[in-house]
């Protein structure tokens, strides 16, 4: 691991602080810009290292934003990991907290009630779209289509009709995948 000079780390931190405020639509939305800067621009990381950080963050439990401290770790060890995590989260956290408080303080005004009511169906449409987008790559592959559809149907049935915890369904999915059923 090559520790990045402090001046370069500061430059990276500056970028992250700005990207943080632009990360509407989630942390992954900042990945292309970070790739442009770290791999194509500065050449501090190679393509494979960048991709494996993204893949690891997606595969492991927890929020996908953890690909950012993984990149920081590759650049400057634990210092890099904590510095980059702080950089990507601090501005958005402070802004979101203040807007969230403002929204809650005004939640009984007509404008805020209309805001909540108007946004609720959009949020549900968004969840359905997310389910579709996650399933699509598996459904596009003819060999996995039947298994994927069966797993989705079983998941829906158990989730809606029983009180089985989702983690057991995820374990069932892992098992089905290992056995080559999906």
């Amino acid at each position: 691991m090559n520790a990045l000079p402090l001046a370069d780390l500061a430059d990276l931190l500056g970028r992250l602080l700005v990207l943080s405020l632009l990360s509407i639509g989630g942390a992954m939305a900042t990945a292309p810009e970070l790739h442009r800067y770290l791999v194509d621009g500065r050449g501090w990381l190679d393509d494979a290292t960048f991709s494996s950080a993204v893949a690891l963050a997606q595969a492991a439990p927890g929020p996908n934003v953890l690909f950012v401290p993984l990149l920081g770790y590759q650049l400057a060890g634990l210092t890099g990991a904590f510095a980059t995590l702080a950089g990507i989260l601090l501005p958005s956290t402070l802004l979101s907290l203040s807007i969230g408080r403002w929204a809650r303080a005004h939640r009984h005004t007509a404008g805020a009630r209309a805001f909540t009511a108007g946004l609720a169906p959009v949020a549900i449409g968004l969840l359905l779209a997310t389910g579709w987008l996650i399933a699509r790559p598996y459904l596009a592959n003819a060999g996995q289509r039947v298994g994927t559809l069966a797993l989705i149907a079983i998941t829906l049935g158990i989730l809606l009709k029983t009180r089985v915890a989702p983690i057991w369904l995820l374990m069932l999915g892992a098992l089905a995948g290992l056995l080559g059923l999906a």
Partner: peptide
């Protein structure tokens, strides 16, 4: 392989949450 199966379940979980 395991992640592929978990991905299919994750898609069902999100859609089921929306329905709930």
């Amino acid at each position: 392989d395991a992640l592929r199966g978990m991905g299919a379940v994750a898609a069902g979980l999100i859609a089921g949450t929306a329905i709930k």
